[in-house]
Design a protein around this nucleic acid. Structure first.
Lengths: 212, 212
DNA sequence: ATGATTAAGGTACGCGGCGTACCTTAATTG
DNA sequence: CAATTAAGGTACGCCGCGTACCTTAATCAT
């Protein structure tokens, strides 16, 4: 707690120290959020000083995102046997995550990054493009079972549900989305969307208009 | 510029001063963003001092949102004759707004509000629930023309497109969404969704499960 | 008119937090 | 056992928010 070199311990260097710092930062993040994670507190908690931090990360946001990454952990892809079940489970996972202290931290970081693509990129690993993977997996199985149209296997389509959920958090500021909302998203939007896409055609839509 | 009472002008009070402050804050917002909108700068620009600000708004965020509101202006609801045209136009409006300096400010405010529902509420007037109105209008006409299923007249469904677009900005951090993306959202998600909803039924979904 | 009341102006300051500078001291390297 | 590298200690500049306290002008009541 003092920041002084504790008499018994040897002075840490390199990776060992870096690890200790990230650990301290991660704990600060969970306890006080990103806003409350001051550089001095992290340094004190890691038993070092700010120099060590600034030698490794150029500023607070960089340290924050680095520390966040060590906290984020991927959940297994559900396989309930129905698309509805899988989708609901994925949404519930996401809801739990966004509702947790960790989710709050993620929101703060997203906010602090503002538009700095580089930092958003490292956060997206768990919440952006890569988050499409489980949805595509689940959707793929649904297509094989005949529960969804093959045209739905498209990142933008596949992730619609989780994007709507995220919207609840980011824009409406809810601390946690009620389960009703998840059900509504699945039943009113997601299932009709992935099911009904076969009916497309009549209203003049250019065929080759799928962008990345 | 000096903040001193200019010799010729009489000392402003009440609404007049409040107006001047909001004006100054709004100009600061546009020029420097919310992050750059300092209380001192606003006071100086309004030709007054911080006291006058803090007597009216409890903190910077409150002043920022108040100033933002005076900048935000509603666009007319399009009526192109087809749902596709209307939806694209609404998306393009939204894209323009989010891409503009004003949109950047809105993103900052949203971020700074963090989860403070009260401030989010005042911003949502133009970007949240109330933003559903134009979509419902446009969808209503589409339903009348037979372009969309009546079940689609539901806030969550109606606003799917603009939520997806907002996601591009908030999560992916793009400065402006390419038109391709708008087209993709409309053609791959929105139109299939509002059209295809009639095909619901088969996969066991509890009938009375629509929450607020 | 003229004093009483209300609100604006002026100014200074405390506090917290980021990022930097500069030196001292321990660990590593050869 | 030097020489080099990296950590520890400490102080500080800077900025920006929010507050306190007093002076001065505008408005209101009588």
């Amino acid at each position: 707690m003092t920041g002084r070199t504790e008499p018994g311990r040897t002075r840490r260097r390199g990776a060992a120290l870096e690890d200790a710092i990230l650990d301290a930062a991660a704990r600060e993040l969970v306890e006080s959020g990103f806003a409350g994670m001051t550089m001095d507190k992290v340094a004190a908690r890691a038993g070092t000083n700010k120099n060590a931090l600034y030698r490794r990360w150029p500023h607070r946001l960089a340290l924050g995102t680095a520390a966040y990454k060590r906290l984020a952990t991927a959940a297994p892809v559900p396989d309930t046997g129905t698309l509805r079940g899988d989708a609901l489970e994925l949404l519930r996972q996401a809801n739990r995550h966004w509702s947790s202290p960790l989710g709050a931290v993620l929101r703060e970081l997203l906010a602090a990054a503002g538009g700095a693509a580089e930092f958003l990129a490292s956060l997206q690993e768990r919440s952006g493009e890569a988050a499409a993977a489980p949805w595509l997996t689940v959707l793929g199985r649904a297509v094989a079972r005949g529960e969804a149209a093959p045209e739905a296997l498209h990142p933008r389509v596949a992730t619609v549900a989780v994007v709507l959920l995220r919207n609840e958090f980011v824009v409406r500021g809810v601390p946690s989305a009620p389960d009703d909302v998840l059900v509504e998203i699945v039943d009113e939007v997601y299932l009709p969307l992935v099911r009904g896409r076969g009916a497309a055609g009549p209203a003049g839509r250019p065929p080759g208009s799928s962008a990345t």
